[in-house]
């Protein structure tokens, strides 16, 4: 494993921890899109179908368990916790996320590297992850004033995607057996581009030491 991949995984892990920290300690999920969280839970469930059937490394298994466990506990907090769920911006979080799921599934059935159940589900998770942040970005745009933890959460997610792209470039040149993965690369690039606008405003707000505010 190279340093970019590790750094990517760590920023991904930190993004989840920041979110759980916000929810658990402040008992608030204000500014967090339940739609995006539902999509991520689905992404992990579809992608990690091999968790008990194929062993890669202890690191791999533990991280998968953390991502699965954390995404479903975030869902539990936002839907069931009697205090946290009251802070959910239900009226603002109106993105119709179900309409993202079906096209991704159809695309995975049509464009995949191998037509098997596990491979199609894996490809579906790649497509869905690429667009899963959209409800969250729309919610941020609507709320405009973004609190620090929510801003950090989205920033860390974007950083994770960016680092994964560098990881792929590195692997492409460093590993002789590494083949081209157009599906993952294009999806990953699209996903990272979705953050570009947010990144611009986030970095400006950090530089000027002001609260993150997105344009209407």
């Amino acid at each position: 494993m190279n340093i970019f991949r590790l750094a990517g995984d760590m920023t991904h892990l930190m993004s989840v921890l920041v979110l759980l920290l916000k929810i658990h300690t402040i008992k608030s999920c204000a500014g967090i899109s339940l739609k995006t969280q539902e999509l991520y839970a689905l992404v992990f469930a579809a992608r990690y179908l091999d968790i008990f059937t194929h062993y890669y490394s202890l690191y791999n298994t533990v991280m998968k368990l953390i991502f699965l466990g954390s995404s479903f506990s975030i869902l539990w907090y936002m839907k069931r916790h009697k205090v946290v769920r009251r802070s959910y911006d239900k009226d603002q979080d109106t993105f119709r996320h179900h309409f993202l799921v079906l096209p991704c599934l159809v695309l995975a059935l049509l464009i995949n590297e191998k037509f098997t159940f596990k491979e199609v589900m894996w490809t579906f998770s790649i497509y869905l992850e690429a667009v899963a942040i959209l409800p969250q970005l729309v919610l941020l745009q609507r709320t405009r004033n973004v609190d620090n933890l929510t801003g950090q959460y989205v920033f860390l997610l974007g950083a994770y995607r960016g680092l994964y792209i560098i990881n792929w470039i590195y692997r492409y040149f460093a590993e002789p057996t590494y083949s081209t993965h157009w599906i993952t690369w294009i999806s990953g690039l699209l996903q990272t581009l979705l953050y570009a606008d947010f990144f611009y405003y986030y970095i400006n707000s950090v530089k000027n030491n002001v609260r993150l505010q997105l344009p209407a």
């Binding site: 991949r5 995984d9 194929h54 590297e113 191998k114 990881n167 590993e175 083949s179």
Partner: peptide, 10 residues
């Protein structure tokens, strides 16, 4: 299997 190289990623 060439296309398994990505499966060790998260």
């Amino acid at each position: 299997d060439a296309d398994d190289s990505l499966k060790d990623e998260l």
